[in-house]
Amino acid sequence: MTTNSPSKVHVTTTINGQQHELLVPPYMSLLDTLRELIGLTGTKEGCLDGNCGACTVSVDGRIVDSCLVLGAEVNGKNVNTVEGMATPEGLHPLQQAFLEEAALQCGICTPGFLVAAKGLLDNEPSPSEGRIRHWLAGNLCRCTGYDKIVRAVQKAID
């Protein structure tokens, strides 16, 4: 960093139900804010340009690519990441279904798919296969060929 770098931004935000007060470099993405300032490394970096969805998190209930959001922008907002899905009682039904359907191989895309699929099921309890595939079009997986992922989401509905 240069000595005249712009001053940090004071951000108060709720992440997975817990309030955080942060000083965020103004050009730092939400992705890096989560991973580097808070230590929530479940959210993955993929393409860094909004194509792959690996960095998907939810902000105020809408899924976004966290690489294309600034940390400074989530002041006063509710952020939810993959780390917020499981409870002390067990895995989220989507996580359980992904395991049972073997909907992952290398696993890099999985947190993004889980958060994106949760964003769908939270608002639409029984989407069609077509709707699931459309909703998940912003998430890329280079291992599974998608069928297992779609089946897992369908299983989580049941």
Binding site: L48, D49, G50, L68, L70, A72, E73
Partner: peptide, 26 residues
């Protein structure tokens, strides 16, 4: 101006634009 950032942050990251300030209009 920063609205959704889906073009701005891509261009800033690729150094297509060298910016001193972004103005969040939201």
């Amino acid at each position: 101006p920063l609205a959704g950032g889906t073009d701005l942050l891509v261009k800033a990251r690729a150094n297509v634009w060298e910016l001193d300030a972004v103005v969040d209009i939201k």
